[in-house]
Simulated assay, not measured.
Amino acid sequence: MNWKGRTVFITGASSGIGEGLAIALATRGAIIGLAARRREILDDLADRCRAAGGTARVFPLDVIDEQAVFEAADDLRSEFGRIDILIANAGIGGNDEATRNYTPRSVKKVIDTNLLGAVNAVHAVLPGMLEQGEGHLVAISSLAGFRGLPKSAAYSASKAGMTAFFESVRLDVRHKGIDVTIIQPGFIKTPLTSGRANKMPFLMELEDAIPHFIRAIEKKKRFAAFPWQLATIVRAGKFMPAWMYDRIAGKARYRE
């Protein structure tokens, strides 16, 4: 796949997976719209993207702000003529006491960011893609969305919703020139997973994980899940009876 000159809009671009993808695509010559909340970090990332050979624009915003996301996409499209790929990556873990206690405001924040933030991004870019007759929507979901996990109610719900939303969109646009890829990674060493006392199974280094994301996008896969060992276990859990799943999954301590 030739990335040179392709315009990519990445939400949650300031760190972790978003940052890694931005640098990787910049080295391939892509035009990248970097969206996240922290301007100073975005400015630094944009400089690194340009040094790597790409073109970068920064859009300091919170993805829960529908109008801000729409205006950012519109500005990017106005400058470069089109948006070829959306990577809906913005997300928070909600790994705190308030969220674990199901405090509505805290749970809402996770769902607003992870799910509705992605909805806002799709709403901002999809009309233009339909008008140009082609485009690619990429959802960075999670293996945590397959079934509920301990101390992860808000996060698992947001990722399950994200997966279902993008799959539904795929069915709606599959004959309109729009590809939809849902990527479900396991544990990746990023700020989102830092500070946990217990070992996370099959934890991947970010630099090892990024090629998996790139490959899934380039091949326009409908679904991609990795690492394969954890993905296999999680998929098997989907078919377990509730009593068996509760016994096995209930022992998980990796959110602590």
Rank of each mutant, 00 (worst) to 15 (best):
P201H: 12
A252Y: 03
S142M: 02
V173K: 06
K220L: 04
E207P: 01
W243E: 14
E134L: 03
T232K: 08
V180Q: 07
K189R: 15
L203I: 02
R196K: 14
L126A: 11
Q184Y: 12
K176C: 06
A197S: 15
S168F: 04
F146W: 14
E167S: 06
G117S: 01
F213G: 04
P241T: 11
G135P: 00
M162Y: 09
I183R: 10
A153P: 00
S141Q: 02
G161S: 06
G161D: 11
G195T: 09
F213A: 06
E131C: 12
G145S: 07
A124C: 13
Y254C: 01
H175T: 08
S152W: 02
P150W: 01
L203V: 00
S158L: 01
M204I: 03
P150D: 04
N198S: 14
A124S: 14
K220E: 10
M244F: 15
V173P: 09
M204E: 10
H136W: 01
V125D: 12
Q229A: 12
H212V: 02
E167K: 08
G161Q: 06
A216S: 13
S142H: 01
P127T: 12
G186K: 06
A231V: 15
N198K: 15
K220D: 04
S152P: 03
K189Q: 12
Q229M: 07
V138L: 00
P127G: 13
A153T: 14
Y254E: 10
K159P: 03
G135V: 01
A124K: 10
F239I: 04
V122E: 13
V125I: 05
F213D: 05
T181N: 08
G237S: 11
P185Q: 08
A197R: 15
K189V: 04
E131S: 15
I140V: 15
K189I: 00
L171H: 14
A124L: 08
D179R: 14
L203Y: 05
P211K: 02
L116T: 00
I214D: 02
P241L: 06
I182W: 15
L130Y: 11
V180A: 08
F239S: 11
L137W: 05
R196N: 15
G128T: 12
F226H: 03
I210G: 06
A249C: 07
F213S: 05
T193Y: 07
S194L: 13
G237K: 09
A236N: 11
W228T: 15
I178W: 09
E131W: 13
A121S: 14
K199C: 11
M129V: 15
A118V: 03
R253F: 00
L203Q: 10
A242F: 09
K199Q: 15
V173E: 01
M244Q: 09
E167R: 09
L137V: 00
L230S: 07
L203M: 11
A154V: 11
R255E: 11
A225Q: 04
A144S: 14
R174F: 08
H123W: 11
K219R: 15
I140F: 01
A121Q: 07
G195A: 09
Q229P: 07
I188T: 06
